[in-house]
Amino acid sequence: MLAAYAARFDADDPISALEVGERPEPVAADGWVTVDVKATALNHHDLWSLKGVGLAEKNLPMILGCDAAGIDPDGNEVVVHAVISDPSWKGDETLDPKRSLLSEVHQGTLAQKIAVPAANVVPKPAGLSFEEAACLPTAWLTAYRMLFTQSPLKPGDTVLVQGAGGGVASSLITLARAAGLRVWATSRDEGKRAKAVEIGAHEAFESGARLPERVDAVMETVGQATWSHSLKSLKQGGTVVISGATSGQAPKSAELNRIFFLQLRVQGSTMGTRAELAELVQFMANAGIRPHIDSTYALADAREGFTKLNAGDVFGKIVFTV
């Protein structure tokens, strides 16, 4: 079957480590099912894998991808949940020490077929295309958990979303607006600031700009470049929820004095649970929300999508059709 996979690692030129070609079809183990993939989406996780971050060399070659929508063996249209927990684990699977994401231990979704535990498929909402549904399992689920599980936000509060162009950030903006929050966003790019307002932000500011007032919470996916601004933007007792660090993980200062003196909360967040994915799907259906797709490519042209993501010129999700 056709797949996009990591054949080796290259920290300096990750695209050179990408191969698009034939791989063996998956064989479903007991309790697992094979899904015929109709669409799959790209994440920064896939670029990190090509650099050798989070993926062991012993597991190469590895089909990349965490997101997929397709058809299960019974003919149902489904969305695939990417967190694979230990079979004995009970409760929140993101807290399982043995958990992994698809494309770390088990082959990923950038392929014509994917094998996953039967519990890792949820019904695809009828109102979304396969391409739109494929955007949900990583970026939109991460955003949903950040907003509604890991933060104390309530309707009427103000939230700042850093780095408006990314897949998680654009999802945060739309979900937060639909939930009745006042949404502010930042970006270095004027066009992305305009787009942020178009998809739900009440106001958008240049990165690092002084805000009209301090906010109740900051949604942080950029990391090093925006960390100081995130902390300075919070009210006393406010919360910063961090789910990524695309600009690096070593800010000039952790600003611990600011954190303890203002009693700020720093909350980590990773992906989401199967239950949260089902909740997200229902929330989007009720609110009439559709995912933001930057561009769509055939899986055979995966290299073009990876190149675009690596260049950073993206607003929303890059999707591959299968």
Rank of each mutant, 00 (worst) to 15 (best):
G200F: 01
G268K: 02
S253I: 12
L280Q: 01
G288E: 07
V78L: 05
V322S: 13
D294L: 07
V37S: 04
P291N: 00
S151Q: 02
K195T: 09
S247V: 00
A245E: 11
D92V: 05
L153T: 03
I318T: 11
L160M: 05
P155N: 13
A7P: 09
S228E: 15
L2A: 10
M284L: 03
V197L: 09
A119W: 09
L2C: 09
E203S: 12
L110I: 10
T296Y: 07
D13L: 11
A111F: 00
A133K: 02
R210V: 11
D36L: 09
L101G: 08
F261Q: 13
T246R: 06
S103Q: 13
V122R: 04
N310M: 14
L234R: 01
A298N: 09
G167Q: 03
D189N: 14
N257I: 08
R8Q: 11
G223Y: 01
G244S: 10
A209L: 10
I318S: 06
P125I: 01
P291L: 01
T149Y: 08
N43C: 13
I318L: 14
F148D: 01
H44P: 06
A7T: 10
E25Q: 12
E131A: 15
A56G: 09
A56D: 15
E276Q: 12
L50P: 00
G165C: 08
L153Y: 01
V37M: 04
T142F: 01
S247Y: 00
H202N: 15
Q236W: 12
T138P: 08
P123K: 15
T246A: 14
D12K: 13
E93K: 07
M1S: 15
L141G: 00
A139C: 03
T142K: 02
K124H: 08
A3V: 04
D30R: 13
V78M: 05
R182C: 07
R303N: 04
K58H: 13
V121N: 04
P14I: 03
L175E: 01
I318W: 02
L262F: 13
